[in-house]
Amino acid sequence: MKRHLLEAADLDRDDATLVLDTAAQIDQALAGREVKKLPTLRGRTVVNLFYEDSTRTRISFELAAKRLSADVINFSAKGSSVSKGESLKDTALTLEAMGADAVVVRHWASGAPHRLANWVRGSVVNAGDGTHEHPTQALLDAYTIRQRLGRLDGVRVTIVGDVLHSRVARSNVGLLHTLGAEVTLVAPPTLLPVGVGSWPAEVGYDLDAVLPKSDVVMMLRVQAERMNASYFPSAREYSRRYGLDARRMAALPDDAIVMHPGPMNRGMEIAAEVADSVRSTIVEQVANGVSTRMAVLYLLLGGSPQ
């Protein structure tokens, strides 16, 4: 593995498989145990550096680090593009002085983790940067798919929604392709980036056409604000054309699953009855997030040779 996990492309197929296998072994080792804690990273310091609110991602990383006995520091630096606080570089130097072995960074700016990696000696884990990537989300999604369907190779994954602004979509396209899955993106053309044609994915505009050929449907969160920028005319029209409701879910193959990275807009991109159905993996995704991130932290920190 590389020293940092900044984007899905940092993982080749063997690395990605190692992360998933390790997560599975951790899950198995901890299953049914009263003490869900391992001494692996005792004496290591993991800093959660969050420039953007994301309670769920932060808690997931925090739990992962704590279950491996690392010391966890939460560093919330809510400098935005508007309110400029301490610079990223100064913060990096501070963390460096504290001796952080790993920095888990969430940032509103695409590429901020790449910048950070130039300035700290520890491992940098990208916990979501702007509209770029969110690689651990892709890992937990791949883990969830493998757990449910037993494989990733040849699995047909359809990602639906605001691909343009989605770091989850970017990481999933990259990682799932690496792992042999066939990815199709479905969105209104306004929410697909110019240049999406160069991605290793099929692109379509018609959700109903691809559902019968989908083993996995991954619904992306669509923010209603996009409507005001004319990405689509109205929430109702979006929901009608790209929302997953019970009727559409019925068009899926029998064992197909429905995923969502959260937080959901029930009634917008996903109907409540779909979110709560047996096909939905939304709760598993949260649980799998912890073991996947434990695996990542273990593999990045467990044995960095000095």
Binding site: T22, I26, Q28, A29, Y298, L299, G303, S304, P305
Partner: peptide
């Protein structure tokens, strides 16, 4: 671990 680097985990059953 610091000395030896990571290794893949094996099952605990």
């Amino acid at each position: 671990l610091r000395l030896r680097g990571v290794r893949a985990l094996e099952p605990t059953v």
